[in-house]
């Protein structure tokens, strides 16, 4: 792999961090929506709720940005 220059490193860092911030944001929002009382295991209803929560949040983002001009 070619070595990254200083700028390349900084850009890579920004990109990866932005992705990870999204994951932290999803868990924050979806934990509140889907998990009431942590039990012995993650039951399938909670698991479906978490997956759907991510998908519906992305749908909402797309709905909102597609309503914009440009």
């Amino acid at each position: 792999m070619a070595e990254l220059g200083e700028t390349g490193e900084a850009e890579l860092q920004c990109l990866v961090e932005a992705e990870q911030q999204k994951a932290h944001h999803f868990i924050e929002l979806c934990w509140d929506k889907c998990v009431e009382k942590p039990g012995n295991r993650l039951d399938s209803r909670t698991e479906n709720c978490l997956s759907s929560c991510v998908d519906r949040f992305i749908d909402t983002t797309l709905a909102i940005t597609s309503g914009l001009p440009g």
Partner: peptide, 9 residues
């Protein structure tokens, strides 16, 4: 459960 949820998400 939080780690499970993190993985699912």
């Amino acid at each position: 459960r939080y780690m499970d949820a993190w993985n699912t998400v």
